[in-house]
Design a binder for these strands. Structure first.
Lengths: 350, 350
DNA sequence: GAGCCGCACTAGAGCGCTCTAGTTCACATC
DNA sequence: GATGTGAACTAGAGCGCTCTAGTGCGGCTC
């Protein structure tokens, strides 16, 4: 029963053999044509492709990966529905394609852990793995990196065993703080990112920038990766006396900043009139006219490009095997929009 | 050169053969253990698993899919970074797992078309395909459905060749309009979704509801799938005289609603004091306290479950092959939060 | 005309699994 | 003791490709 149904399916399955028969050549020749390597005359090449088109044939990737010594496959773990991961993925697809690698995606959801996602990538025999905003421990990552080349995007990993491609988070927050200071702000708060990837570095950048500049006052409000935490931070912000409140805020990321802005505006404050806000990432929404968020831009295009390059160079033997490449740190860029303005008498009632 | 490097990799590769040798059994027995089928004694089973653990072995999915007549694999196309697709994916992973299918993801990005995404899924020899919010033409989808079972989630497809799992969009907008009417609103506008999946049905639902209820005035503002279009619609809304403006708005989706609310609030209007707003989807953000959007909830969990069930039943031969199942239409649910309120004298200056 | 080159093409042995058709063996049955 | 039974296990032929090591042959040189 089961067998017979399967047999039906089998009979429909068109393989290289069928294409070869139709084109009047050997299987090997068809393989040569589809891999795009030398060894077939132009005439035959076209005949084979025509036969394949007629039969609606396309090579079975499972079989080709098995047959070849290389799978030319890169695994990617990411959070499904995460806006910035979407931007990164766009870049990964482009550059993987250019480097002749295929991408295998494995999503991380509330009920599907990153470890499980990685497990399926290993079972697929990916040659390298890209982790977007990994939340695994350094030890776990190091163990994985001993198996195959791994690059952590967005999240720094100490120890040097794991490849890292990230934005200079520390410099990013320095940029944010200096921008606000140049506008005359002295009470600049940080909406912290807690334990999220990159948060520790941004906190460090904030602290360093505040301490270096004379007259700045350090003030850290608990925040987090989404609008929810930004909104909560706003409530804490509003609970302070108007006199004692910071006049500017640097947020862990754009979504956090957007949640913050939403709530302070609903409370009747003006952004940037009463409080200036700087985000981080430059997600698509930040550029929408009604949001117009000043932010520290992470270059998704370059982050993706470097992640692929890092792995491809190791896999293609262009860089010494064994030694993972040094971390790639990309400089962020301040994008000034309409959520920041010079400090005014209104928000510094001295 | 190339060869030698590859040979090194080969030597590291641990296969079923190695596990079998270590456990002192045949390859076939190891296969039996890993597939979890009957035919191995408990003692042997444990010995094999122990050997596998020692060698850090995991079966090669490429090879197992090739060897078996079934791949037990479902392909999914989705928009990377799309919030609601993230919610759906969560459900898809859960139910695919329960039905003993694996998911293969293929992302759609601005530079990677849905057709290209489908192409890689076919090359992977998926047994069925789930399309989230497909934007392909009916003809393209019908052609694909002739090759293998396909289910379109969120987007209705006429013709009956393609499986469909969706929310009753029409009923959803009726729910929204009736809720607003019950609050006393008579001028209820629709922020339209344009050509996005589901938009036509929602428009129809809005029209029907408005026409059925005496006293309601039809008013459609161009909108779209993101905050950007919601914000633009808000500007058109604000351009109307305060007297002539609708007192309530039903948006194509939550993101559109959020953009709308943002802009009208920045213009000094109160939501829901001056204008009530209803969204659609019930994305995570809609429930955040500072957003508190009244919305028509699409049940991501059930949509995902039905998508998997539809395909699994056809593939496992439980439903007659050839005839695609009837469309599954899931009733939406109104979630009342704080963005809607009874009409007041203030917003109906008669 | 012998010898050689290089292009176009083929044979066939893998790749790491699955799965059918066995084999083996302890134990029960008559 | 011959036979049967069923559980535990194995042999080996695929699955649809890749890729090395060929073969065949037209054209060139000397």
């Amino acid at each position: 029963m089961e067998r017979s149904r399967v047999a039906d399916v089998d009979s429909e399955r068109v393989t290289m053999e069928h294409v070869a028969a139709r084109a009047g050549v050997s299987r090997a020749l068809v393989s040569i044509v589809f891999r795009g390597v030398a060894g077939a005359s132009e005439a035959t090449r076209e005949r084979v492709l025509a036969a394949a088109r007629d039969l609606d044939y396309r090579p079975d990737t499972r079989a080709s990966r098995l047959g070849s010594s290389r799978t030319r496959t890169l695994g990617v773990t990411f959070s499904v529905g995460h806006t910035f991961h979407g931007d990164l993925m766009e870049s990964l697809y482009t550059h993987a394609d250019a480097a002749a690698y295929e991408l295998v995606l494995s999503g991380v959801t509330p009920s599907r852990s990153e470890a499980a996602a990685v497990e399926t990538l290993l079972a697929e025999r990916c040659e390298g793995i890209v982790l977007l905003g990994s939340s695994q421990s350094t030890a776990q990552l190091a163990r994985l990196a001993r198996r195959l080349p791994v690059v952590s995007v967005l999240r720094p990993v100490p120890g040097g065993e794991v490849g890292v491609v990230r934005t200079d988070d520390t410099a990013g927050l320095r940029l944010a703080v200096e921008h606000l200071r140049a506008l005359g702000h002295t009470r600049i708060a940080l909406l912290d990112g807690g334990r999220t990837a990159g948060a520790a570095e941004r906190r460090r950048g904030y602290r360093a920038a505040v301490r270096r500049a004379p007259g700045l006052v350090e003030s850290i409000l608990p925040g987090g990766p989404s609008e929810l935490e930004g909104a909560e931070a706003a409530r804490a912000f509003l609970a302070q006396t108007a006199r004692g409140r910071p006049t500017a805020v640097a947020a862990f990321n754009d979504r956090c900043a957007i949640g913050f802005v939403d709530v302070v505006r609903q409370a009747g404050l003006r952004v940037p009139g009463d409080v200036s806000v700087v985000g981080f990432d430059d997600i698509t929404e930040a550029a929408y006219p009604h949001v117009a968020l000043t932010t520290v831009r992470q270059d998704a295009e370059r982050l993706g490009a470097e992640a692929v390059r890092t792995l491809a160079e190791r896999l293609d033997g262009e860089s010494p095997p064994g030694t993972p490449p040094p971390p790639v740190v990309i400089e962020p860029e301040l994008v000034v929009r309409a959520s920041t303005a010079p400090v005014t008498r209104r928000n510094t009632p001295s």
